[in-house]
Design a protein around this nucleic acid. Sequence first.
DNA 1: CGCTGGGTTGACACTCTTCAAATTTCGTGG
DNA 2: CCACGAAATTTGAAGAGTGTCAACCCAGCG
Lengths: 239, 239
Amino acid sequence: MLTEKFLMGRGRRYLTADDLAALEAAVERVVELPPRHTLTRRGEPVANSTLLLEGVLCRYMDDRDGDRQLVAVQIAGDFVDLHAFPMKHLDHDIATIGPATVALVPHDRLETLVLERSSLARMFWFSTLLDAAMHREWIFRLGRLDARGRVAHFFCELFERLTMVELAEDGRFGLPLTQADLGEACGMTPVHANRVLRGLREHGVITFRDGVVTIDDREELRRLAEFDPAYLYPGGPDG
Amino acid sequence: MLTEKFLMGRGRRYLTADDLAALEAAVERVVELPPRHTLTRRGEPVANSTLLLEGVLCRYMDDRDGDRQLVAVQIAGDFVDLHAFPMKHLDHDIATIGPATVALVPHDRLETLVLERSSLARMFWFSTLLDAAMHREWIFRLGRLDARGRVAHFFCELFERLTMVELAEDGRFGLPLTQADLGEACGMTPVHANRVLRGLREHGVITFRDGVVTIDDREELRRLAEFDPAYLYPGGPDG
DNA sequence: CGCTGGGTTGACACTCTTCAAATTTCGTGG
DNA sequence: CCACGAAATTTGAAGAGTGTCAACCCAGCG
């Protein structure tokens, strides 16, 4: 029962006990990973899919100069690289930010699961579609919002998602990122990320310090971000 | 046989004749759509999924001022809104650019297909994962490239994709977008899109005129875009 | 106690947006 | 076939938003 509470995160709400047990049984082993550790590199063949139990992972791509663009952030309960199961390899890298704990599910066991349990197969598909929906919102964020809006939007999303798995409360949550990581997620330099954060702090909107986010004015944060959580499909596959 | 050549586009290469026939049989009807026509609005319940047979569709989201951000462009052979099948509704709008022809597949028939033909189910999943991979690349484009690079990257992607379905040859392809549409895809104003295009034209890289793209210097275009087509998984689900 | 990584600040350059207007293209009706 | 209006493209000038470069501060840690 190592995988406990966060097996499939918010997804567990939509699975039968039976399916959950089958999924848990498919876990080959649980691994603890150090900070700044690369799990998967683009193009490499992937034999396991990874369920994140604790910590934060990021998926990213490098530009010519080696600067990263984060394309997704995964939190506890996320199936991180389910994509790699049908696709055999990934088009991006995956790494930890801080320390993390993951459960590995071999692809041959996944194969059995999806063949024998169409409800799980459907859930897996849904999970990757949710990733795609978040990707789209990141595109919107980068394409249409200014730096302050992008940062605000990023925090809005993480707050909603962490709330769904009960890792945020009272407008407060842990997020072990550096300002440079934030910049890489929001498409700006670390220097500018710093200035934006100062602006948000001084206007009493949000404080990000020592890996802890405190939302002081939720309304204003949402307004700046033009945020609507509908894309996170809070009702699940049937909502 | 209305759906002919572009049923499932590049995907048809990876399907058996049997699966293709089953898919074709699931098409309820084929519809011609006028330019600038909205197919699906965010949040609306969706009862059909749409196979694009001819023309170009775009998926987009509006910001507060009503300005659009394109999050995807679909070309002939794409399954446009397969997402809506497991998710019941979409988080974004879909519209035509120029005139388009689509085949509608009711969700209850899709349901039957995926239950009875796991190979088709797998193919559908793969198709949505490809969308996600393209989304990620769009994030990279917007986050890490300057305006010229973004435009170059956009054209690189469309060239590769249109080549795969044999709609481009000799570095030339039709793409019925306005400069404003291009700006909405690449996160810039129409004015700036115009200036970027002029720059690319004057440097002999690419010409975009009257809905026709002519690539004059493929090497340079790729370099500017930092483009690597691997994310399009040219080898298909087994590559 | 010095090193190192993260955070903070300032000055300046540059990309891109904004606003405004002129020009070209194209569909439509006279 | 031409005239007209609407949409798309093009250009200029000015200003806002970010990036760049460089320095400094601070805390944690060997």
